[in-house]
Design a protein around this nucleic acid. Structure first.
Length: 498
RNA sequence: GGUAACGUGGCCGAGUGGCUAGGCUCAGCUCUGCAAAAGCUGCUACAGCGGUUCGAAUCCGCUCGUUACCUCCA
């Protein structure tokens, strides 16, 4: 119906028309969180961005297999041999088993994602559950001559690899520049080159998380898990690989190299998609800078940078109102504006439910110009999404559509001016894009208890006035909602219907 | 130091040569018992300086400013 989806491919630095390798199937892999801390706004952006991509692909009829991993091992504090595993470090701090840490933060991640209406991926593999696959992959890379073993650890040989393939193709890095500018880190004497990265690390005596391997008792390197798990569930080459822009180098670059080195498949994925960062006062929000805001803090308002609490849908809308490849600056003002914009869209959903196309209107000739305008507006909504998932554009178009919807509701535009087809198109486009694709849903506002108390006050007044028709009406409606009124000598109260 | 971006009106944020972005804020109008909602109208823009072009926020150059990646981070 519309033009096709175009995606910006980091690999080619161009927008490309999306063409699956094996339509109608689409394989999509996105780097998930390392579960050693609470999810923050940055996690939300990545998750929401790829959630919309997932939803839109499904909306277009593709059969999508969406894999998003949980990193629960191998992610070190830094690249040096002494670098401590993030999970293990946290476990020590809190006197917990590493897997307790992992479970704890994985659960929180899931809860927060649910609140943001982020759909669960089809497969959510954990690195620690795929050690065998990773060991096998290392063996292949060794056999192909692109890795070497030193003291029980295995490193990827970047320079040997670079002679046959191009290391740095994704991030646009030149290997000589890297060599000249890499900072010297402690504990790298095992490596032949500072650019080499670990595939397997021998565990030091104090290291808790360890597995047997042909080389030593140890643990896999961070970059390996994504290669091994994407290959296992999506095949050696798949359609889309996503993640945050900060993972492009070295993480994704290493993934491409590992894939090529192990099974000689180029690029691992056809489209590499990266979301940009969220900034605070123009600076990246990140763990290392300590300026990040956890999602739970946003939802509760409990953070010094927050003037108030913001609901999950406000956050989702805030993220979607910018294009995913732009940085997005956090501020209370911006979030407050997002809240209002979101509410406006939701009010539109409610209005639309009440609007009915009147059949008798067909007698009158529709306004051709208006119909064409509305059809163009609906097309604009899709055009935005198709243009590299530009949700900002789509939302702008939805607001334009909303003006017409509100005008219809107020009778400023007469229903008979529309053709049935135009009305259906407008309604379906709005409802499906807002609800199914953008994933915005209604949040109940206010406190049910307060509303009920108010109803009971009117109920009591009606009884005192002996207006029993009103009294009965209130009873009937509340009962329909599963609530019964209890008239007691001591007062009036309500209870759930048993 | 290397590489790559970015600088849009009070705020956020789209827009890669000519077509109103949009949201929030502010002011006015319509509607309205009051108010709100909604609709309509208005208000301030493209960091600066040059250049290319019939025409540039959009292409090129320089200057200023900001950021990211190069080490863990979505």
């Amino acid at each position: 119906m519309q033009q096709k989806l175009n995606l910006y491919n980091t690999l080619t630095r161009k927008k490309e028309e999306f063409e699956p390798l094996h339509a109608p199937f689409v394989g999509m892999y996105v780097c998930g969180p390392t579960v050693y801390g609470e999810p923050h706004l940055g996690h939300a952006r990545s998750a929401v961005t790829f959630d919309v991509l997932y939803r839109y692909l499904k909306y277009q009829g593709y059969k999508v297999r969406y894999v998003r991993n949980i990193t629960d091992v191998g992610h070190l504090e830094n690249d040096a041999d002494e670098g401590e595993d993030k999970i293990q470090k946290k476990a020590k701090l809190e006197h917990l088993e590493p897997m307790e840490v992992v479970n704890h933060y994985t659960n929180i991640y899931h809860q927060e994602m649910d609140k943001l209406n982020v759909r669960q991926p089809d497969i959510e593999p954990r690195a620690s559950g795929h050690i065998m696959e990773q060991v096998q992959m290392i063996q292949e890379i060794l056999d192909n001559g692109f890795a070497y073993e030193v003291n029980g650890s295995v490193y990827f040989d970047v320079q040997t690899y670079n002679k046959q393939h191009k290391y740095g193709k994704l991030s646009g890095r030149i290997i000589d520049d890297l060599l000249n500018n890499t900072r010297t880190l402690d504990g790298q004497e095992e490596k032949r080159s500072p650019l080499d990265f670990a595939l397997w690390k021998k565990a030091s005596p104090t290291h808790i998380m360890r597995w047997p391997s042909p080389w030593s008792e140890g643990f896999p390197g961070w970059h390996l898990e994504c290669s091994a798990m994407s290959r296992k569930y999506l095949g050696t080459t798949f359609d889309i690989h996503g993640g945050g822009l900060d993972l492009m180098f070295p993480h994704h670059e290493c993934e491409i190299a590992q894939s090529q080195a192990s099974c000689n498949h180029t690029d691992a994925a056809k489209y590499w998609v990266h979301n940009n960062m969220i900034t605070v006062n123009g600076q990246k929000m990140g763990k290392s800078l300590g300026n990040f805001i956890n999602l739970s803090e946003l939802f509760s308002g409990n953070h010094e940078m927050l003037e108030q609490a913001y609901t999950p849908m406000t956050i989702r809308f805030f993220i979607l109102q910018a294009h995913y490849r732009s940085t997005l600056d956090f501020s209370n003002e911006a979030l407050q504006a997002a809240r209002k914009g979101y509410t406006k869209l939701m009010n539109g959903m409610r209005v639309l439910k009440k609007l009915k196309y009147t059949e008798e209107a067909v007698e009158n000739a529709p306004d051709t110009k208006l119909n064409e305008e509305l059809q163009k507006l609906t097309q604009d909504c899709f055009r935005g999404l198709n243009d590299d998932l530009n949700t900002a554009k789509t939302i702008a178009s939805l607001f334009n559509l909303l003006k017409k919807i509100n005008s219809l509701y107020l009778g400023q535009i007469k229903m008979e001016e529309l053709s049935r087809g135009t009305f259906d198109l407008m309604r379906d486009t709005y409802q499906e894009l807002v609800g199914d694709v953008l994933g915005l849903k209604e949040e109940t506002v206010g406190n049910m208890q307060d509303v009920l108390d108010l109803v009971l006050t009117f109920y009591k007044e009606a009884k005192e006035q002996k207006a029993y028709d009103k009294v009965d009406a209130i009873r009937v409606e509340l009962k329909r909602q599963g609530i019964v009124i209890k008239d007691m000598k001591t007062g009036i109260d309500w209870a759930y219907e048993e």
